[in-house]
Structures are given as structure tokens and as C-alpha cells.
């Protein structure tokens, strides 16, 4: 059982959450301009990462809010939890603070079981700090999932 630290509610059991698939797959800016292959890739093609993976989660039996999570798909270690719309904290060096702001104050009020989950610590001692040019901002036309 994973213990997931919801940004609003604090640490809760995994069974209260629903998985929402890969995060940071932007809707194409010009959907009608895509050919069938590109559209299918946007819809269905997702990364199958071994290691740190950015994914969406929904706290469906709690506050019913979505959030993003960086999780290691091998060790299940939760590296970071950050709000929807925020850039991925281990890649976008531009705004790491907005990524970490989520789990702070609220978690004290809840009856959370474990004292601390790894979520508050962002291991931005990242593996590849300078892979910047490929995935800078969501402003680029090609969606991350489409070009794979």
C-alpha cells in the first residue's frame, strides 16, 4: 500500500486515490492540423518509463482534486508531489518552488498516519539537469506524447 501525501489532505492510503496516467501531455494547439498518426499518438501513446515518472493522481475519496506526482516506477518511491499545471520539478529548473509548495501547511491538520512521506523532499540533485532544450515549456507546438 502506497501512502500518498495529498496536497490538501495529507497522507492517505493509496486506495483513496485514482491513477490518472502520464502527466504533462498537453492538448495539441492545432488539433485539426494533425494527421491521423499524430492524433493517435497524442491519444494513446504514453511513455513506459523505468525510473522517475511524472503521473497524475486524483484524491477521489477525499478532496476530489487532481495533482501530479513524480514516482519511481521501480522502487515506488514518491519523489515529489506538485500541483496541476506546474512544470515538472526535476526538469524545469526555472520554477522548482512552485512545485514544492503543495504539501506544506495543510498536512498537519489531518489524521495522517505516517510522520513523513518522501513527498516533501524534492531530489533535485537530478539525474540530468541539462536536458533542457527538448522539454522547455508547454508552449512548443509538438505535444510531449505525440513526438514520443
Amino acid at each position: 500500500m502506497l501512502l500518498i501525501s495529498c496536497p490538501n489532505c495529507g497522507s492517505r492510503d493509496e486506495t483513496e486515490f485514482h491513477y490518472g496516467g502520464q502527466a504533462h501531455v498537453p492538448y495539441p494547439e492545432n488539433p485539426s492540423g494533425l494527421n491521423d498518426r499524430e492524433w493517435a499518438e497524442f491519444l494513446f501513446y504514453r511513455d513506459n518509463t523505468k525510473g522517475i515518472f511524472a503521473e497524475r493522481w486524483l484524491h477521489s475519496t477525499g478532496c476530489r482534486q487532481w495533482f501530479n506526482m513524480l514516482r519511481d516506477t521501480v522502487s515506488y518511491d514518491i519523489q515529489s508531489i506538485y500541483p496541476m499545471g506546474a512544470p515538472r520539478p526535476d526538469k524545469a529548473a526555472a520554477a522548482p518552488e512552485s512545485g514544492t509548495a503543495s504539501t506544506a501547511a495543510d498536512s498537519t491538520t489531518t489524521g495522517s498516519a505516517a510522520p513523513s512521506i518522501a513527498a516533501t523532499s524534492i531530489t533535485s540533485t537530478s539525474t540530468a539537469p541539462s536536458t533542457a532544450p527538448s522539454t522547455t515549456q508547454s508552449g512548443t507546438t509538438a505535444p510531449e506524447g505525440a513526438t514520443k
Binding site: 492517505r12 492510503d13 483513496e16 475519496t61 478532496c63 489531518t110 489524521g111 495522517s112 498516519a113
Partner: peptide, 19 residues
Amino acid sequence: CALDLHPRKFKPGTALTTE
């Protein structure tokens, strides 16, 4: 219920949505 229901954590006048 997996929450910590001990009175030091879960005080009267608190409502949590959980399982």
C-alpha cells in the same frame, strides 16, 4: 479506518472524508 484516530491527532470538531 487507516487514519490516525488517536485523540492527540484527531480532535473533536474535526471532519475528514476518508474510507
